[in-house]
Amino acid sequence: MPDLSTRLARERADVLDAIDQPPLARIGARARRRRRQRHAARAGATAFTLAVAGLVALRPWSAEPKPPPPVGNENQAVAPVYTDDGITINGLSGTAAAVPGTITEVEFADPDTGYLVAQCVTGDPCSPTLARTSDGGHSWVTTALPPIESDPDLLLFPDGRLALGGHISADEGRTWQAAPGHAGQPAAAGRGQILRLRDAVEVWDSGYGYSGTLATQPGLTAHWLASTPTASGAWWAAGQVDGQAAVAVTRDGGQTWKVTRLAVTGQIAQVATLGTHVYAAVLDANGVIQAIFHSVDSGATFRQTSTGGGSVAGDLVPLLDGRLLAVGTDRRWHVSADNGRAFTRAEGTLPAVGALARTPAGYVAYDLFNAGWAAFSADGSTWRKLQIN
């Protein structure tokens, strides 16, 4: 009897014999015919390509022209850069717009949208002018202003409206109407309202303008009020309590205030914030620093970092790298890497500057080069010179 492997081999052969085999000859012939068709098609395509190339060579105007290589503008202005110690100012990249008078206030609602007020010196017959930009200060459009008080504040509201010298604009300063006002004692600044310091802390509304004196004052003799709230909505005020410097903060629009006495004698106090970091500077009447305090917990507690020295013109600027920037009364830039304990002067090519000021979208530098120029920065480190003067 054949063994198992022999029987399996015979049965496999029987099964294969029983299966109808495909027509291999016909399949092979079909494959050869398709190969011949593909070869012919490629040959035809090559011939067509050569014919077209020859036609294009004879008729070059029928071919799609290649774009010319880019040509550099030999007259394009290269913006100068002024820098030192991590502070950079990008200069003018074109022709600056002219505005009569001197730039007295600049406010930016966001990095692109900004406004400035230019006023004439005493005895000059020109009228105050408002200019606005929508491209970050590269180009400006000027608008004539109605009669306004001699030194008005330009106020930017969260809804985009403007207030200036008793007038309200709902169309980016193109037209102005007298603000109706609404004298009262509001409990707090609500939606679309801001706080402003004159003789006392006031509430201003984007529709009414002046809306009355805040019912609950900060609890100190206020000499300074932040021009804009922090990212969390807190408003800071600074002044004196019993002859000593103090700061106060409200986190509910002015309904309640927390006062912190700094236990240092000074004429003026001011606050600068970045995230949870809060700096409080105590100055004398000439801007000379008497003390600097630092908080890392949003102002819950303060630690004194400096006992004085140097001076401040305008606002302090906390930088993203942890340093503190200030402009001194010497019209130079100064930075501190130890929370205000000591400042070093930035040299390099940085120009003279008059003062720094907070604006809703960042900071403004005034009187650059001792020539009335202004610059804007969203972070205090990189500045853009505004193309208007």
Rank of each mutant, 00 (worst) to 15 (best):
K258I: 12
D242I: 00
R191I: 06
Q177K: 15
T329I: 09
A355M: 10
A280L: 02
L4Y: 15
I292G: 08
G166S: 09
D284K: 07
R59C: 05
I87D: 07
I194C: 01
Q193K: 02
T382R: 15
G275E: 04
Q193V: 03
G314W: 10
E347V: 10
E107D: 12
D159C: 04
H167R: 02
R26C: 08
R7A: 14
P180Y: 00
Q255D: 10
L156Y: 05
A346G: 00
Q119N: 13
G91Q: 04
E107R: 15
S377N: 08
A189W: 03
S211I: 03
P351G: 03
T221W: 04
T276P: 07
A248D: 04
M1E: 13
T102H: 12
R30M: 13
S381W: 00
E107A: 15
V264T: 13
V121H: 14
T307R: 14
G166E: 06
L350W: 03
T228S: 08
N389E: 15
W204A: 10
P360S: 01
S298Y: 11
K66L: 14
I388D: 12
A178S: 10
N286K: 07
D338Y: 11
R33Y: 07
L356H: 01
A215E: 12
G101L: 05
G275T: 12
A371Y: 04
L156C: 01
T260L: 05
Y366R: 05
T175A: 11
P218K: 03
L162K: 02
R384V: 14
I388M: 13
R251C: 07
Q304A: 06
V56H: 09
T142I: 09
A183F: 12
I292S: 08
P152G: 05
L324A: 02
W224V: 03
A40I: 10
L156K: 02
Y363I: 02
G209F: 08
W61T: 02
P180I: 06
T228V: 08
S298K: 07
P70T: 07
D85Y: 09
H294D: 14
L162M: 12
D3F: 15
S227P: 14
R34H: 10
L220Q: 00
S211R: 15
S336Q: 08
G362K: 02
